[in-house]
Amino acid sequence: MIANPAAIAVAVTLLAAAICAVLIVLLRPVLQRYALARPNARSSHKIPTPQGAGIAVIGATLVVGGAFASVNGFAPLTSLFVAVPLLALVGLVDDIRPIPVLPRFVLQALAVGLVVFTAPDDLRLLPIPLAIERTLLLIAGLWFVNLVNFMDGLDLMTVAEAVPVTAMLVLFGIFGLLPWPVTAIAAALGGAMLGFAPFNRPVAKVFLGDVGSLPIGLLLGWSLLQLAWQGSIAAALLLPLYYLVDATLTLLRRMARREPFWAAHRTHFYQRATDNGFTVAGVVGDVFVLNIGLAVLAGASVVLRSVAADVILIVLGLGAVAVVLRRFSQPRVRPSGGA
């Protein structure tokens, strides 16, 4: 039992933020030299910008989160703390010299599978054979890791997603609705993202890179899966609902058009918004507010504990997401100036 989990969670958040910020300052000259992201037709940035700040985010998360999460033993975290660095290494190599699609996908599957198939057998979601359920979780995990990577295409976008999600997970943990290791990891990840935010605000001085976005996807996915295993499946869906809907609809649209859906592009709703006249700050601000609303709905789901309530809350969440996506899809109407 953790004494005063709220105070410890705040300490974890602040410590991870400080370590991440210091690491970015130290790493930025190296990234500027060896990991420069140059603008292309699919980019949202206009000037060459160093990428790879995910090294600091993931490093701070694992060091601080691991230290505080393992107070009752490290064994339950072993597979996660092997899989996350593996995925970060895959991302780092891909940032410097792109890896072909198939071997990259295989390595991602290895990392996600390590987390999914080493989980205790008594952690279940569906009344189906365990092997089938874990295979479905592997597929879902692979999609979630990649969609977080796909959605990391605008300054502060991943911050606007990860901070509300991790904050609500920490709140659940403080009230005893999540195991302490999950709470500590979420607090550390949220803190690290806060430490990264000043360097990534428009116009960004540094990007996460795949070395950050891929393992962040795994950490978020693992945390949300833990929430679902505690019986809060609706909350686990509501928290990342904007990312799930934007990325999935974009994938289906590209597949329907027979486009190479695995290739980089600029057709996500948030990217189309900037093409439609929205500022980066405006898009990210809308996503951040939406995610706060989704976090409130997730909290209501956990409190109410009702199937009927879950259905209503998910419909409300989908409605809110639909409003934002429709707004992003249409050219921004600028007020006309006076005569």
Rank of each mutant, 00 (worst) to 15 (best):
I8S: 07
V12C: 06
A16F: 04
A16R: 04
A16P: 04
A17G: 05
I19C: 10
L27R: 08
V30G: 00
V30S: 12
R33N: 09
A35K: 00
L36W: 13
R42C: 12
S44H: 02
I47T: 14
Q51S: 11
Q51D: 01
G54S: 09
T61H: 03
V64F: 09
G66P: 02
S70G: 10
N72W: 05
S79E: 11
V82Y: 07
L86A: 13
A88K: 01
L89G: 01
L89F: 14
L92F: 15
L92S: 02
P98A: 10
P100K: 10
V101I: 14
V101D: 09
V101H: 10
L102N: 01
G113A: 12
F117W: 14
L125V: 09
I128F: 07
P129L: 08
I132Q: 02
E133L: 09
L137V: 05
W143D: 08
V145E: 00
L147G: 05
F150Q: 04
D152R: 06
L156Y: 09
M157S: 15
E161Q: 14
A167N: 08
A167H: 04
A167C: 13
L169G: 04
I174T: 06
P179G: 08
P179T: 09
P181A: 11
A186M: 10
A187T: 10
A188N: 08
L189I: 13
V203W: 00
P215K: 03
I216Q: 00
W222R: 03
L225Q: 01
Q226V: 11
W229Y: 15
S232W: 14
I233H: 00
A235N: 04
L239H: 01
D246A: 09
T248S: 14
T248Y: 01
L251C: 08
A256D: 13
H265F: 09
H268K: 05
F269C: 08
F269A: 15
A273M: 11
A273G: 06
D275T: 11
V280E: 15
V287K: 00
F288E: 05
N291R: 00
I292Y: 02
L304T: 12
S306P: 07
I314D: 05
L316K: 01
L318T: 01
V321S: 06
V321R: 03
V323L: 14
R326W: 15
S336F: 08
G337E: 13
G337M: 13
A339K: 05
